[in-house]
Amino acid sequence: MSAVLPLPDLPASRIADDGSAVVRVLSYNIRSLRDDLGALARIVRACAPDVVCVQEAPRFFRWRKAAARLATATDLVYVTGGATACGPMVLAPLRAHVEHTEDLLLPRRPGLHQRGLATAVLRFGRTARLGVVSCHLSVNVEERLAQGRLILRQLEKQGAPHAVVAGDLNDRPDGRTFRLLAGELQDGWTTAPWGREHTTRLGDPEQRIDAVFATRGVEVLGCGVPMGLPGVTEADLRAATDHLPVLAALRVPAAG
Rank of each mutant, 00 (worst) to 15 (best):
L122M: 13
V52E: 03
E99N: 10
P93W: 14
A71V: 01
V77R: 15
V132D: 03
A67N: 07
P88K: 14
E99T: 03
R108W: 08
A96T: 00
R115C: 01
K65I: 04
G131Q: 02
D50E: 10
A118P: 05
A120N: 04
R95V: 08
A118C: 13
G125C: 11
T80C: 14
F60A: 01
T84Y: 05
A68M: 09
A57P: 03
M89L: 13
D35P: 01
R129P: 02
V90W: 13
P107N: 08
C47L: 12
A83R: 13
D103R: 08
F60S: 04
N29G: 15
C53L: 11
R45Q: 07
F60T: 00
D75L: 09
G125Q: 05
G131C: 05
V121E: 05
A83N: 02
R59P: 03
P88N: 14
V51W: 11
A48K: 15
T119F: 12
T80I: 03
G131E: 04
C47T: 14
A71G: 01
A92M: 04
R109E: 05
T84H: 14
P93R: 12
A120L: 07
A120C: 10
V98P: 00
D75T: 02
V77G: 12
H97Y: 06
L112R: 09
T84I: 09
A66E: 06
H113L: 00
A128E: 03
A118W: 12
F124Q: 02
L105Q: 09
Y28C: 01
L112Q: 07
N29H: 11
R115P: 01
R59C: 01
Y78H: 13
L70M: 13
Y28P: 02
T80H: 07
A85M: 11
T84L: 06
L76A: 05
L70N: 10
E99F: 02
V90M: 13
I43L: 15
R34G: 04
E56N: 01
T74D: 04
E99A: 06
K65M: 06
A73Y: 11
T72S: 08
E56F: 03
P58H: 03
T119W: 10
A128L: 09
P88L: 09
Y78K: 09
D50P: 03
H97I: 04
T80M: 03
S32T: 02
A128F: 15
P88T: 15
A83G: 14
D103L: 12
V44H: 12
A67P: 03
G116I: 01
A41W: 04
A96H: 09
P88F: 11
H100I: 02
G82V: 01
P107W: 03
T101M: 02
